[in-house]
Deep mutational scan, measured.
Amino acid sequence: MTSCHIAEEHIQKVAIFGGTHGNELTGVFLVKHWLENGAEIQRTGLEVKPFITNPRAVKKCTRYIDCDLNRIFDLENLGKKMSEDLPYEVRRAQEINHLFGPKDSEDSYDIIFDLHNTTSNMGCTLILEDSRNNFLIQMFHYIKTSLAPLPCYVYLIEHPSLKYATTRSIAKYPVGIEVGPQPQGVLRADILDQMRKMIKHALDFIHHFNEGKEFPPCAIEVYKIIEKVDYPRDENGEIAAIIHPNLQDQDWKPLHPGDPMFLTLDGKTIPLGGDCTVYPVFVNEAAYYEKKEAFAKTTKLTLNAKSIRCCLH
Rank of each mutant, 00 (worst) to 15 (best):
L136N: 03
K60R: 12
L78H: 10
D193I: 10
E40T: 04
H116K: 11
E129G: 08
E293Y: 07
G27K: 04
A15K: 06
N77V: 12
E106H: 13
Q138K: 04
G19A: 00
R168S: 11
F113Q: 03
R233Q: 10
H141W: 01
M195Y: 04
F205M: 01
I6Y: 13
E227G: 11
P151A: 08
D275R: 08
K253G: 06
Q12K: 15
E40C: 02
K81F: 14
P183E: 06
K13F: 00
L272C: 12
T166K: 11
T264E: 01
L126H: 04
V58K: 02
T145Q: 15
F205H: 06
D110H: 05
S108A: 14
N236T: 10
G274K: 01
K268M: 08
N284P: 03
A294N: 03
Y223A: 00
T145W: 06
K32N: 15
K60I: 09
A7Y: 15
L263N: 00
G274A: 03
P50C: 08
H244F: 04
L255H: 02
S83W: 09
L126D: 03
H33A: 09
V58I: 10
C4W: 10
I143Q: 02
A7F: 15
S83R: 13
H244L: 05
I199K: 05
I137L: 12
P245V: 02
T119A: 08
G18A: 11
G101A: 08
L78A: 10
H10M: 15
A219I: 07
E84W: 12
V278T: 08
G180K: 06
G38Q: 14
E9C: 08
N121W: 04
P160C: 09
N70G: 11
M82Q: 14
T302V: 13
S105V: 10
P280F: 03
K200C: 11
K103T: 11
K144S: 09
N121S: 08
F140G: 04
T298Q: 00
V186A: 11
T167A: 14
L263E: 08
T302K: 09
I170V: 14
T298A: 14
F135I: 00
L30I: 01
R168W: 07
I65W: 07
G27F: 03
K59C: 09
K297F: 11
N77R: 11
L115W: 01
K306I: 07
P254W: 03
N246K: 12
V154G: 04
K224N: 07
Y153S: 10
K291N: 11
I191Y: 03
L303H: 01
G79L: 11
N284R: 05
A294P: 03
E238P: 04
P174H: 15
E178F: 15
D204E: 00
L99E: 12
Q42A: 13
H33R: 12
S169D: 07
D190E: 11
L136I: 08
Y64I: 06
Q250F: 02
Y279D: 02
R132P: 07
P50N: 01
Y155G: 07
G212K: 00
P102N: 09
M139A: 01
K200S: 11
D114H: 07
C311N: 14
R71C: 13
E89L: 01
I65L: 11
G38L: 14
I127L: 10
H244V: 00
N37E: 10
D190P: 03
L75K: 11
L192Y: 08
S131C: 09
L156A: 06
L312D: 15
K306N: 12
Q12A: 09
K291H: 11
D251S: 00
Y288S: 15
F140V: 07
G180W: 04
F113N: 00
Y279V: 00
V222S: 00
R309H: 12
V58W: 07
V283C: 07
P87K: 10
D74T: 13
K32Q: 12
R233M: 10
C218K: 03
I112T: 01
Y164A: 15
V31I: 11
Q194P: 06
K300P: 07
D275G: 08
I65P: 05
E214D: 08
V229L: 02
T125D: 06
I16M: 02
N121E: 03
I112Q: 01
A148E: 13
D204Q: 01
P232Q: 05
K103H: 12
R56S: 12
K81A: 14
L312M: 12
K163I: 08
N77S: 13
N77F: 12
A286Q: 14
D114Q: 02
D193Q: 11
I191S: 01
E40P: 02
P149S: 02
R56W: 11
K144C: 10
V154W: 05
P216R: 05
L247A: 03
N134L: 06
E214F: 09
F282I: 02
K144H: 01
Y289P: 15
D234V: 00
L75A: 14
I239A: 07
P174N: 15
V278Q: 02
D68K: 02
R196S: 06
C67F: 10
F73T: 12
V179K: 05
A287K: 13
H313R: 15
P245D: 00
S3L: 09
A240I: 09
S307K: 11
N236Y: 10
F140E: 05
H116R: 08
P232R: 01
F100L: 07
E158G: 07
E8Q: 14
K268T: 10
H256V: 08
T26R: 05
G45Y: 01
K80R: 14
D275L: 06
P245Y: 00
L272T: 07
N54C: 00
H244K: 03
F73I: 11
I65R: 05
L126C: 03
A287W: 09
E158H: 02
K49D: 08
K103G: 11
L126E: 06
F205N: 01
R233D: 00
D74R: 10
S83L: 13
S307Q: 10
V229K: 03
F135Y: 07
T299N: 08
N37K: 08
R132E: 14
C218I: 07
Q194T: 08
W34M: 00
E36H: 10
E129H: 10
P181V: 02
L303K: 05
M82D: 14
L255C: 07
A171P: 02
H244G: 05
Q250N: 14
P217L: 01
Y288E: 14
V229E: 08
R309Y: 06
R132Q: 15
E211L: 12
Q248H: 05
Q250W: 04
D104N: 15
A202L: 02
S146E: 14
D130P: 05
T298K: 04
Y142R: 05
D130N: 08
P55Y: 09
T53K: 01
K80I: 13
A57M: 07
G19E: 02
H141N: 14
L30E: 02
H5P: 15
F51M: 10
H116A: 08
D204G: 01
I226E: 09
D230P: 15
K268I: 08
P55G: 08
I143W: 05
A148S: 12
E84R: 13
D190G: 06
P254T: 01
E47V: 10
K292F: 08
D190L: 01
Q138L: 01
Q94W: 11
G19M: 03
H207Y: 12
F140S: 06
E9H: 15
D66F: 05
I157M: 15
I72T: 13
D249K: 02
A202F: 03
T44I: 08
I143S: 04
C311L: 13
Y279S: 01
Y64N: 09
I220V: 11
D66Q: 09
D66L: 00
A7E: 15
Y289C: 14
G273M: 10
Y155E: 05
C310Y: 09
P257V: 07
R233P: 02
P151I: 01
Q248S: 06
L78R: 10
F17S: 00
I111W: 04
L150A: 11
D275M: 07
R56L: 13
P232I: 00
Y64L: 10
K103W: 09
R91T: 14
Y164S: 15
P216D: 08
F140M: 11
K60E: 13
Q182I: 09
L255W: 01
E24T: 06
H116L: 07
S131I: 07
V154Y: 00
D74S: 13
T44K: 14
E235Y: 07
T302M: 12
K228R: 13
C61D: 08
T44A: 13
L35N: 09
M82Y: 13
K163L: 08
P55L: 09
E36S: 10
D190C: 06
M122R: 01
Y155W: 11
S105F: 11
L69H: 06
Y279I: 02
L86E: 12
I270Y: 02
E89M: 01
A202N: 03
K103F: 09
G258Y: 06
T269M: 09
G258I: 05
L263T: 07
H159A: 12
R92N: 07
L156Y: 10
R196T: 02
